[in-house]
Lab assay of single mutants.
Amino acid sequence: RPMNAFMVWAKDERKRLAQQNPDLHNAVLSKMLGKAWKELNAAEKRPFVEEAERLRVQHLRDHPNYK
């Protein structure tokens, strides 16, 4: 299953946050990521939305029978 825009963004952002906050549990990091994503405007999200769409199209090509 291809990543959605949030997952594309969160992949690198989670690493950055975890390095800055090594003692935080994953659940806390996830909440921080969700809050930060909601605060991004459409222009800030656009590159990740476009990458998610590219991944979706590639997934359809690679797995035409996937449901």
Rank of each mutant, 00 (worst) to 15 (best):
R1M: 01
P2C: 06
P2T: 12
P2S: 11
P2R: 10
P2Q: 12
P2G: 10
P2Y: 11
M3L: 09
M3I: 14
M3A: 02
N4D: 10
N4I: 07
N4Q: 00
N4G: 08
A5R: 01
A5V: 00
A5S: 07
A5M: 02
A5N: 04
A5I: 01
F6Q: 04
F6A: 02
F6V: 00
F6I: 00
F6T: 01
M7R: 11
M7I: 09
M7F: 08
M7V: 07
M7D: 15
M7L: 09
M7K: 15
V8G: 02
V8L: 15
V8D: 03
V8M: 14
W9T: 01
W9G: 02
W9S: 01
W9Q: 00
A10V: 07
A10R: 02
A10E: 09
K11Y: 02
K11S: 07
D12N: 11
D12R: 08
D12M: 08
D12E: 12
D12G: 06
D12I: 03
D12A: 14
D12H: 06
D12Y: 01
E13T: 04
E13P: 02
R14N: 01
R14S: 06
R14P: 00
R14M: 08
K15A: 06
K15M: 02
K15L: 08
K15R: 09
K15C: 02
R16V: 04
R16L: 06
R16E: 02
R16C: 04
R16I: 05
R16K: 15
L17A: 00
L17S: 00
L17D: 00
L17Q: 02
L17R: 03
A18P: 00
Q19R: 13
Q19F: 03
Q19S: 11
Q19E: 14
Q19M: 13
Q20R: 10
Q20L: 11
Q20M: 12
Q20N: 09
Q20V: 10
Q20T: 12
N21A: 04
N21E: 10
N21S: 07
N21P: 01
N21F: 14
N21L: 08
N21I: 01
N21D: 06
N21M: 11
N21T: 04
P22S: 02
D23S: 06
D23Q: 12
D23N: 08
D23T: 07
D23E: 15
L24N: 01
L24S: 04
L24Y: 04
L24T: 11
H25W: 00
H25D: 15
H25A: 12
N26G: 13
N26P: 15
N26V: 10
N26T: 11
N26I: 06
A27C: 07
V28R: 12
V28N: 12
V28T: 14
V28K: 14
V28H: 14
L29H: 04
L29N: 02
L29M: 12
L29P: 03
L29S: 06
S30I: 07
S30L: 07
S30R: 13
S30Y: 09
S30H: 08
K31P: 08
K31M: 10
K31R: 11
K31Q: 12
K31L: 05
K31E: 14
K31T: 06
K31N: 09
M32D: 07
M32C: 05
M32Q: 11
M32G: 02
M32I: 13
M32K: 06
L33F: 02
L33Q: 08
L33D: 08
L33H: 09
G34R: 15
G34Y: 12
G34V: 15
G34F: 15
G34M: 14
K35F: 11
K35G: 04
K35C: 07
K35I: 03
K35S: 08
A36R: 12
A36M: 15
A36G: 06
A36Y: 13
A36L: 11
A36K: 15
A36F: 04
W37H: 15
W37L: 00
W37G: 03
W37S: 07
W37T: 04
K38Y: 06
K38N: 11
K38F: 06
K38S: 14
K38R: 11
E39Q: 11
E39V: 06
L40S: 04
L40N: 08
L40P: 03
L40A: 02
L40R: 02
L40W: 03
N41S: 14
A42I: 05
A42V: 09
A42P: 13
A42S: 12
A42K: 07
A42R: 07
A42H: 05
A42C: 07
A43S: 12
A43R: 10
E44R: 05
E44H: 01
E44A: 12
E44V: 05
K45R: 12
K45V: 02
R46H: 02
R46D: 03
R46I: 07
R46P: 03
P47R: 08
P47A: 04
P47I: 10
F48I: 01
F48A: 03
F48V: 03
F48T: 01
F48K: 03
F48P: 03
F48L: 02
F48R: 02
V49R: 11
V49Q: 12
V49P: 00
V49T: 02
V49G: 02
E50N: 06
E50V: 08
E51S: 04
E51C: 07
E51G: 01
E51Y: 06
A52I: 00
A52S: 08
E53C: 07
E53F: 15
R54I: 05
R54A: 05
R54E: 07
R54H: 06
R54W: 02
R54T: 01
L55C: 05
L55D: 02
L55A: 07
L55T: 06
L55N: 06
R56L: 05
R56A: 11
R56M: 08
R56G: 07
V57D: 12
V57N: 09
Q58I: 09
Q58P: 09
Q58G: 09
Q58L: 10
Q58E: 11
H59L: 08
H59Y: 13
H59C: 14
H59W: 12
H59P: 07
H59E: 07
H59M: 12
H59N: 11
H59Q: 12
L60C: 14
L60T: 08
L60R: 14
L60W: 07
R61G: 10
R61Y: 08
R61F: 06
R61M: 13
D62M: 10
D62R: 10
D62L: 08
D62S: 12
D62K: 12
D62G: 13
D62C: 09
H63A: 13
H63S: 13
H63W: 08
H63N: 15
P64V: 11
P64E: 13
P64N: 09
P64A: 13
N65H: 11
N65I: 08
N65T: 13
N65K: 13
N65S: 14
N65A: 12
Y66F: 14
Y66C: 15
Y66P: 15
K67Q: 14
K67L: 15
